[in-house]
Amino acid sequence: MPMTWRPEMTPPSKRLEGRAALVTGAGSGIGRAICMRLAEEGARIACLDRDAAAARATADAIGGGALAIAADVANATDMQRAVEATAAAFDRLDIAVNAAGVGASARLVDTTLETWRHVLDVCLTGVFVSLQAQARQMIAQGGPAVIVNIASTNARQPGEGLAAYCAAKAGVEMLGRVAALELAAQGIRVASVGPGLTDTPMVARLLADPVAREAFLDNIPLQRPARPEDIAAAIAYLASDDAAYVTGQTLYVDGGASMQRYPSLAARKPSAPAA
Score class of each variant (00 low, 15 high):
Thr125Ala: 15
Gly176His: 13
Pro158Ile: 03
Val102Asn: 01
Phe128Glu: 09
Ile95Gln: 04
Glu173Phe: 10
Val127Thr: 05
Asp121Cys: 05
Thr125Pro: 15
Gly161Val: 00
Val127Leu: 07
Arg92Val: 08
Arg117Lys: 14
Ala164Lys: 02
Gly101Met: 07
Leu162Asp: 09
Leu131Ile: 13
Gln132Phe: 08
Val97Trp: 03
Ser152Trp: 01
Gly161Lys: 00
Ile139Trp: 04
Gln157Asn: 15
Trp116Asp: 07
Ala164Gly: 06
Gly159Phe: 10
Gly142Phe: 01
Trp116Ser: 11
Ala170Arg: 09
Val122Phe: 01
Gln157Gly: 15
Thr112Lys: 04
Leu93His: 04
Tyr165Lys: 04
Asn149Phe: 05
Cys123Thr: 13
Ala163Val: 13
Gly142Val: 00
Val109Arg: 02
Leu93Ile: 13
Ser105Asp: 11
Ala170Ser: 04
Cys123Ala: 12
Ser105Tyr: 11
Gln141Phe: 10
Arg117Thr: 14
Pro144Phe: 09
Lys169Phe: 12
Gly103Phe: 12
Ala100Tyr: 09
Ala168His: 04
Val127His: 15
Cys123Ser: 15
Asp121Gln: 02
Pro158Tyr: 10
Thr125Gln: 15
Arg156Leu: 15
Gly103Leu: 03
Gly142Asn: 05
Ala168Pro: 08
Gly101Ala: 06
Val127Pro: 01
Arg107Asp: 06
Gln141Trp: 08
Ala99Ser: 09
Ala164Asn: 03
Ala155Cys: 12
Glu160Asp: 09
Glu114Cys: 08
Leu131Met: 15
Gln132His: 14
Gly126Asn: 10
Ala164Cys: 07
Ile95Gly: 02
Val129Ile: 13
Pro158Ala: 11
Lys169Trp: 07
Glu160Thr: 07
Phe128Lys: 14
Phe128His: 11
Ala135Asn: 02
Ala106Val: 05
Gln134Ala: 08
Glu173His: 12
Ala96Gly: 04
Ala135Leu: 06
Gly159Asn: 10
Asn154Ser: 06
Leu124His: 04
Arg117Asp: 13
Val127Cys: 12
Leu124Met: 02
Val119Ala: 01
Ala135Trp: 13
Ile150Leu: 13
Thr153Ser: 01
Ala163Phe: 00
